[in-house]
Design a binder for these strands. Sequence first.
DNA 1: CGTGTGTACCACATGAAGCGGTACACATAG
DNA 2: CTATGTGTACCGCTTCATGTGGTACACACG
Lengths: 149, 149
Amino acid sequence: MTDRGMGMWIHVDPRSPVPMYQQIVESVKANVAKGILNPGDKLQSVRELSVELAINHNTVAKAYRELERENVIEVIRGRGTFITLQPTAPNAEQRREEMRETIRKLLIEAHHLRMSHEELWQMFHQVMEEWRLSRETEAPESTEEGEKL
Amino acid sequence: MTDRGMGMWIHVDPRSPVPMYQQIVESVKANVAKGILNPGDKLQSVRELSVELAINHNTVAKAYRELERENVIEVIRGRGTFITLQPTAPNAEQRREEMRETIRKLLIEAHHLRMSHEELWQMFHQVMEEWRLSRETEAPESTEEGEKL
DNA sequence: CGTGTGTACCACATGAAGCGGTACACATAG
DNA sequence: CTATGTGTACCGCTTCATGTGGTACACACG
């Protein structure tokens, strides 16, 4: 389900209820987590990406601003945006609590889908295993097209 | 963290980014999953709940409509709304896929918080155990204030 | 009949999201 | 130096979802 050659990139669905700028944020974070984007890699410029996605530059800029706020990317004025070298996620404890809340909502949804805790447990296991495999497959050593920071 | 006596009820934060009608939906589904609301239980009327929450009746009605669409509640015109006796969740397979997607997002978030898969696994275990305990504690046999269906 | 139920409208206000355009400060290459 | 590319900051505007306030209807029940 990749776009071209390497595990390329960002998807945006204008008809999705989730805002496009947030879809960009999630895409970048997903690519980082999968090892497709590595620390130091350069991102497309705001205007480049806005053309690629057929989207307003302000929307892309909003996404980049959010990514910088989360310390996922670093911005160097006049140079471009790069994946953070030594990432430090802010609000760690708060975000862990949000993860727990998400898990609680999964338990609620499981109940309404008549899933036992055992089945939910298996779902966790299955998805984590898929993830582990796709990471080993798609992770490159280095060298995309982008120069490094 | 209950409101009064039994594990009472619905919370709504007008300043939350998540719409109030959806907060109502989540509250009801959570109460059902916890066993605080049981099949056949009667819900507050649209206008009652709108007064309780200091909210417009249309907003409550929207929540009830969504809950009926998900087969969580049953509506009897002129009588009231009741928790479904034999619930059948629609779009089961699609909703299971959404659950998997949620788990994938948890994996992404875990990566950015420098959590190992082991730590995430422990978080799953911990939240599920908390849930199991709170269910055993808060689940009543029957008889709230409401008449049954 | 009168009351309580869910439901269906309507007009309106508010805010987020996105667009289109312009402009500025900075870095780098020429 | 200039020219170009970078992120950023505005402005006005449209669109849409949310929520409000009000009114009205069909139904059930005492």
